[in-house]
Amino acid sequence: MIGNDIVDLKQSPSSWKRPRFLEKVFTEKEQHRIHTSQNQHQMIWLLWSMKEAAYKLHVQQYEIRFFNPKRLECELISEDKGIVTVDSDIYFTNSNITEDYVYTIAKQTINKAINTSIFKSETFNYLNQSTIIKQRILKSVSETEYLDIETLEIKKTEIGIPEFYSKSVKLPIHFSLTHCGRFSGFAY
């Protein structure tokens, strides 16, 4: 299972400067890290993307949704590697930080090999973005897993987890899709 999340640092999804935003999202320890950080904006969205990526994995694992970012507790081991704890589960994160974006992948084991891609979106329309990301990952999966792309499709479960199907048979490939601002990405 895998989770990913991208945040466009120049078109971040929300204003963290509004009152009570940080308190709703981050634990006291995380808030301390943010306040002592040289680049607060980047630190906030790094921790956010770690939480989001870990959440997407957690939902695949338990198939229960919840909205409580504080329940996902982040610990940074280095600039780009971290651990996210959700109750008794531990997930390992790897982030890619550039001037433009923060991109995090969450895994259950450190060494698990993954395929991932980040690309610029050509559209700002949600449905088009969603279609483009799906086309991209289907093309990639068809190539790496030697599957006929014509038979592949993505369906969502009742709670919104996307799954691969080939000729109506569910494939045992977990994946995660993400989009923010100018960027989209997938991982599996």
Binding site: S14, R18, K24, Y126, K156
Partner: peptide, 20 residues
Amino acid sequence: FINDLKINSANLVDVILDVE
């Protein structure tokens, strides 16, 4: 909010703050 309206989770924080 998420599956139908496609509100992203950062904006879900905004929704909650706005409701408050």
